[in-house]
Design a protein around this nucleic acid. Structure first.
Lengths: 341, 341
DNA sequence: CAGAGTCGTGAGAGCGCTCTCACTCGCACG
DNA sequence: CGTGCGAGTGAGAGCGCTCTCACGACTCTG
């Protein structure tokens, strides 16, 4: 059946505490908020009263007057997106949470459903726009996503994970240097002596995927090579399909760069089925360095500093919330070498 | 550099709308909350005013008086847990979100950090306990987790994903029939003619893992067999290690049941490295049916109805929040057969 | 020793909303 | 034609908190 006594008696308020400590509401409020202008004796008395009464401030009352909720949202466009980029998103989520530790700010994960409330004016837009949160981190934003515009129009502080498209709303953002990262992957393959190199790129409507493709192409071009391209959607199965297509187009393929570890995993599976040895026949490099360490063989991958991304995202958003300016940040990647390339 | 005009002018309030529509605050409130006792003409006028002004109710003010926040929390104990059971937790999260679609209730994901605010009275306990949310779904609860007790003591409605230990707080819960699920896995292996069967069990301090072990043992016993047991923590790598240990203890192993797909994946890797064919030499069954469909070979697994679990969790919690009783729910599993067993 | 600060404290307004209660109609009833 | 009643509406009292302002009690300064 269920929980214990059905709700304790009325929760203590500032008033109750004040009466108990023999001071005014204002003074209790000062103690609770750590104001320095309270004498030590009074402070102690108030703290004792708070302890005895088990007083906890009412967040609704507080934010009614402060116009602050001490809550920020991480907004993920839709469940499918959420699942597909799984490892990256969960990691980012965890890291953002960690970056918030020690502060009073609470993180709320908002997943856009696909129900009727989906479009502009939907439940989630209303939520994010109507004062429930002080600001938002927008994640996994595709080009046609209206959310950045909505947030900007509503005057709600927001930052982006990943750079916005050139024609998009100019929100502050944190990105990793995808061009350089992908280029280092391409150069690594070239350095290994590979010459027939292909890439499994990400969705064409995401800037991160575009940049990785750009970097890859630049890396090959520098070596006087051209590469095959096949697109996936960051999932394992799309990587599997893309790798088969690539193999069909170029049976003598000897190097492969996948724009996500998930896709690299799918490619590994396709290669194994096709009887190719990795790295013997085909050297494979992934991206994210989030899912490949336990692969077979362990995946060489471009690591993104997700912890730093999270910290910068939080820092930028905090700045915007306080009305300070926030400059975009671009973080470097590192190539982590393992057995696959 | 950032968002557009720095915040629109003061947001419209009930007062503003009332003035514009030529009615009182109370009437606007009635319209906003869909009260039936408003004449059609007035309702229309008010709705027009709301539209023109772009009025959005202030949630803090509202919940200050209603004592409701229309927000529930899903509480995940710690980042490591979150990561380890990855697929299950993300799926559950998505499904709970989906179950909430159409309602006005918003889901907040709360991850317990490991900082100083960790213990009782920590940031997260305060958050969940102090009126930020109407209730909470507790997930991945280990035996020594104080949270169920804290919630019960604070009188905050809460429900559990997975049955609580016998000596734990009697919160309403939703569980799957882990005993029957594991038993069906064992029976399947037996039915395949396997006789040297082992299991990789989950953490001993989680009831779900216990139940799976119980069911597995029961299934073997019914066939007059005994099985080897090795414990893991639901991660891929723990499955890898456990499978090696099992292989060392019983080289002629011909059947293996892992209490999670992740661990089954690790086992697959260990078996391949040991030169065993799956399912030829060793038949493998996983649990969750969340990560094995694209494995090599595709994993036979015990499927949990995560969507139903989510729906029931939401239903039970809603009942508790409304002060209605909530009976525990136990849902059935199904064995999904693929190539691995 | 008067004037000018400090410092700690309390009084009280007000944040935007909901909800009870009282009031005003218009209409059916006796 | 008075009375009763239900439906629609408004007035106003809070919900629990923060924050400005005023004030009393000191401590300094000249």
């Amino acid at each position: 059946m269920a929980a214990g006594t059905n709700e304790a008696i009325a929760a203590p308020t500032l008033e109750t505490v004040a009466a108990r400590a023999g001071v005014s509401r204002a003074t209790v409020s000062r103690v609770v908020n750590g104001s320095p202008k309270v004498s030590p004796q009074v402070r102690e008395a108030v703290q004792a009263a708070i302890g005895e009464l088990g007083y906890v401030p009412n967040p609704a009352a507080r934010s009614l007057v402060t116009r602050r909720t001490d809550t920020i949202a991480m907004v993920v466009p839709e469940p499918d997106d959420f699942l597909f980029a799984d490892a990256y998103l969960t990691t980012l989520l965890t890291e953002v949470n960690r970056a918030l530790e020690g502060s009073e700010t609470q993180l709320v994960l908002v997943i856009q459903g696909r129900g009727p409330g989906r479009g502009a004016g939907g439940r989630m837009h209303r939520y994010v726009t109507s004062g429930h949160v002080d600001g938002a981190i927008l994640v996994s934003v595709h080009r046609d996503n209206p959310l950045p515009r909505i947030m900007a129009d509503a005057g709600v502080p927001a930052v982006l994970d990943g750079r916005p498209p050139a024609d998009g709303v100019a929100l502050p953002f944190v990105d990793v240097d995808n061009v350089a990262g992908a280029q280092s992957a391409a150069e690594h393959l070239v350095g290994l002596g590979r010459r027939r190199i292909a890439t499994i790129a990400g969705p064409a409507d995401m800037t991160g995927a575009q940049d990785r493709l750009t970097g890859f192409a630049a890396g090959l071009r520098a070596a006087g090579l051209a590469g095959l391209v096949e697109h996936g959607d960051y999932t394992e199965s799309s990587g599997f399909r893309a790798a088969r297509a690539l193999l069909a187009a170029e049976p003598r393929l000897d190097g492969l760069f996948a724009a996500s570890d998930q896709m690299a995993l799918g490619a590994l599976r396709a290669l194994r089925q096709a009887g190719r040895e990795v790295p013997g026949d085909v050297a494979v490099v992934g991206y994210d360095d989030l899912a490949g360490a336990a692969a077979d063989p362990p995946l060489t991958s471009v690591r993104q500093p997700v912890d730093l991304v999270a910290q910068e995202l939080v820092r930028l958003l905090a700045a915007r919330i306080d009305g300070r300016p926030a400059e975009p940040v671009v973080l470097p990647t590192t190539l982590v070498r393992r057995a696959s390339a």
